[in-house]
Amino acid sequence: MKLVKMVTIMGIKIAKNKVNEFLERVKQEYVLYAPVENGVTKFEKIGDPADICILPNRTDISLKPIFFPPEQEFFRWSKDTEGYHIEDLLENEEKKVIFGVRGCDIRSLEILDTYMSGEFADPYYTQRRKNTVLIGLTCSYPRESCFCTAFGGMVPNHYDLWFTDIGSYYYVDVGSEKGKKLIFGDIFENATKEDEMKKNRKIKKVEDEIERRTRIDLCEIKRCSQEIKKKADDDIWRELGEICVSCGRCNFICPTCHCFDVRDITNLEGSEGERIRVWDSCHLYEYAKTSAENFRKERHARVRYRIYDKFVFPVMRYGVYACTGCGRCTDVCHANINLRDVLRRLIS
């Protein structure tokens, strides 16, 4: 324990009024993304750091669209004498820094990575994911729907830099070499022991608050996969099936949902066009339809499938839960289905 402490680099901090200067400097080398408010809060490419909105907690819309946009062009095709000419629309790499991400955002990227650049590789996602520096921010207080403590806590295991508000400063944790390169000597200062204690207290306070609200015990979550697996015939599915409207909003807002449909768009003559992918949702009627039959015709089967695909199947295949506890699905649900309540009922 002692040894670890000795090699840990000295804590650092940044004055709040220097953050814009820091981001301005970052922008000289990277494309900067950060939360902005525009009706909803979401991550956008930043021109002027003054547009950035430092929020008390997570954004309404996750990081997913940056790496997996709602519509992604695969390639352009055009008719020629040799059949068709195909032009790959794989973008060039973009060095990006994303500022103001939360623990749930980073965890969602880890989950997307296992799906899309792990066992199977998706070139379009992987290309966008390359050269990404993540600068996280501790939440000031949780949202009503948050339950990230159930899936690993507010501060994730991997980050490049992690900011925690300690008054007039942000305490800065350095998590990687990439992050270390952004520590400009003239902007950051050395932190004191007291600053570090303040940071730890702050994180603990928010995590306790989330835990108090969610009341999903961590050890219960650990066995929730097995519990849910046993509940395939539970009445809860019929009940949820009756109130769910199959709109697919929970899929689209979910930071780890990654299903897509592949489509062609063409000009009127059909002589050229693009192959694109668009987000798809397992709640939609057509999702599991084949030429022979629709495998999840009933709404309750689709509700159940989504819960299984978050809490059972990924555990079987990859050993991870495909949920970050961000609570976005609860926030957007038309039928007021609260995922936390569903989980609580399933594991009780």
């Binding site: 199977f120 299903c259 897509f260 449909d261 798809d280 339809k289 022979a292 299984y308 695909d309």
Partner: peptide, 24 residues
């Protein structure tokens, strides 16, 4: 098994049943 595979490489999710991808 028949499923409506969109990607064929285990990503799009359409063919997933019970934790396996029918396409892969």
């Amino acid at each position: 098994l028949e499923r409506n595979m969109k990607c064929g490489i285990g990503i799009c999710g359409h063919c997933a049943v019970g934790g396996v991808y029918v396409c892969r």
